[in-house]
Structure formats: C-alpha cells, structure tokens
C-alpha cells in the first residue's frame, strides 16, 4: 500500500523531478566538483606536484590564522563594517523603493528609476577617484564648504573613525537605485484591491505603506536579509582597497584585503584558501541558524 503510494507520488510528479535535472547536474559539475579544491587549505601547495601531490599540513594554516594578531582585528573590522552595511545599507533601497512606489506620474517614476540606477554601472575605480577628489583636504568640495564656514579642513580619508561611514555612504550612493529593483518587482505582486479598500476605509498614505506595501514585500526583505547574513564576512574588496591606506588600516583592513595581500601579493595560496574556508564556514553556520530562527519566528525562510 505504502509502496504504491510512493510510486503514485513519483509518477504524478515525475515532471517536477525532470525539471530539476539540468539545474542539479549544473550545480554538481560547476559548483560541487571544484569544491574539492578546498583541500588546498590543508596542504602545502607545490607547483610541480599539483594539488593532489602536495604534502598534507593538516590544520597548520588554521593555527596560523587564529594565532595571528591581525586575525582579530580583521574579524572585528569585517563584522563592524557588515553591521554598518546592514543597518544603513540594507534599509536604504527599501525606503527608496517605497518612495518610488508612491509616485503617481508614470513618466517621472520611470525616469527617476533609470537615473537612480546609473551609478551601479560606474566602476569603483572611477567612483573612488571622484570621492578622493571630493574629500580632498586641499582642493575638495566638501572641505571648501567646511573651511568657508571657518573650520579647519578635515582629512576624511586619513581618519580611521570616518572610514566605515565613508565606505557605507559610497556603497549606498552606488547601489541604492540598483537595490530598489528587486523590491519594486516584489511590489508588483501586491493585490491592488487591497489599496482600494484601504482608501475607502480612510487609511492615510503612510498607513497604506505600513499595512499593505511593507507586509507585501516582507518575504523578499527577510530572504535578502538572510542571504546578507550568510555573507557577513564579505564586505566587498574594491571599494575598500581603493580607499584605504596605512593611516586607516586600523578600521579598514578586512578579510578581502587581508586575503588579497597574503594570496596575490605574498603568494601563500593555501593560507588564503584556509582563510576563505573559515569565512565560508562562519557564513554557513550563520545562514542556517538564521534561516531556522526566521522560520520559527515569521514563517518566512529560504528553505
């Protein structure tokens, strides 16, 4: 009886499983097969003998990592920068998307949406150059304003205490418009009749946003937040690398810049792999537990 039930399930839903085949094969070949490369983290990579022929060194790379005084600073900086990115950078596109959603003039909405996403296409090299000029203590616009008000010039990019704020502001500047797209797409799924009946009930604009639009995109918000948590130790390399200098290392040195120096500059490939593996494990543990918590609390989750 049970066996036939199972068989019936498979026959009935065979297509669903057939649909899954190409995607799963893809993941297996292009994502899981290369994953065996993480063994580099436990080996001393020798160029001639290749990955498999190199000698095992066990957990030596991880001991080095946890013994390094830099590790704790890098960890703290990465986490703090991520928290800034989540606290300021995460809500920004939601707010802008809500604002755009309230625009009644279609042409205005479309044009402003298009303008908002322009900075996404300007590479960090160019944007960083613009920022350095903007914030220049001698010739920058910002300091012209400050000095014209009678204060001394501020050396923005040389003060560790400003670094996170500058990076997060720059990221919002570059990505906020791009980030709205996903929420605007989610908002298209909201039933328009909800707004109509709310209007009849006399709800204000802000009430309609609060009680209809925000719950309508809540799933998307939760999922994006969960994914961001999984990448909590990824802050983005280029913007930090282009804007930091020895004076701001104290707050600016993050995992990406650390891995860049040890991997590409010092050529310690297995150590760099070990650092990457550490980041992945942290991210995975976080995303699994956060997903569990989100499912229990809100009923919304990735899986």
């Amino acid at each position: 009886m049970q066996a036939t039930g199972k068989l019936q399930y498979w026959i009935r839903h065979r297509w669903l499983y057939i649909f899954l085949i190409p995607g799963l094969i893809y993941l297996l070949v292009f994502k899981y097969v290369p994953m065996f490369g993480v063994v580099i983290a436990f080996k001393e990579l020798n160029l001639i003998r290749g990955i498999w022929g190199s000698d095992w060194i066990g957990l030596a790379n991880f001991t080095t990592l946890f013994d390094s005084p830099h590790f704790y600073r890098v960890l703290r900086n990465s986490l703090l920068l991520s928290i800034y990115q989540i606290v300021w950078g995460f809500p920004a596109p939601i707010i802008v998307a809500l604002m755009l959603n309230e625009v009644r003039q279609m042409a205005f909405k479309r044009i402003s949406q298009t303008i908002l996403y322009l900075p996404h296409f300007i590479s960090w090299v160019v944007l960083a150059g613009i920022l350095i000029n903007f914030l220049s203590p001698s010739s920058g616009l910002v300091n012209h304003l400050i000095t014209s008000m009678g204060y001394g010039p501020v050396r923005f990019l040389m003060e560790p205490s400003y670094f996170r704020s500058i990076i997060v502001s720059a990221e919002i500047w570059k990505e906020v418009g791009w980030g709205t797209i996903i929420y605007l797409a989610a908002m298209t799924g909201i039933d328009p009749t909800l707004y109509e009946s709310a209007t009849i009930d006399g709800a204000s604009r802000l009430q309609r946003i609060w009680y209809i639009t925000i719950p309508g995109i809540a799933t998307t918000v939760v999922i994006l937040l969960l994914l961001k948590l999984g990448n909590i130790l990824d802050n983005g390399f280029e913007q930090v690398f282009l804007l930091y200098n020895p004076l701001t290392y104290e707050t600016a040195d993050i995992f990406e810049t650390y891995t860049y120096r040890i991997g590409l500059q010092d050529g310690r490939l297995s150590y760099a792999t070990a650092v990457g593996l550490f980041k992945s494990i942290v991210g995975f543990v976080l995303i699994v537990s956060a997903n569990y918590a989100a499912r229990k609390i809100s009923g919304k989750s990735i899986w």
């Binding site: 097969v33 994953m35 490369g37 993480v38 990448n231 490939l269 992945s280 991210g283 990735i302």
Partner: peptide
C-alpha cells in the same frame, strides 16, 4: 516536493563555499 529542503540547502551551500581559482581552472 520531497527532497525540497535538502536541495535548497545544497543550493545555498554553493553560494557560500567554492573551491577557489585553481580547481575551477582545472575544471
């Protein structure tokens, strides 16, 4: 769908772990 959770987990796994430059180059 049976196996849905495990497949989703396997997909999320690929978002966090990757073999790095060298194995991908080999592949």
């Amino acid at each position: 769908l049976k196996g849905r959770r495990i497949i989703m987990l396997a997909i999320v796994f690929t978002m966090l772990f990757n073999g790095g430059l060298i194995p991908n180059y080999y592949l």
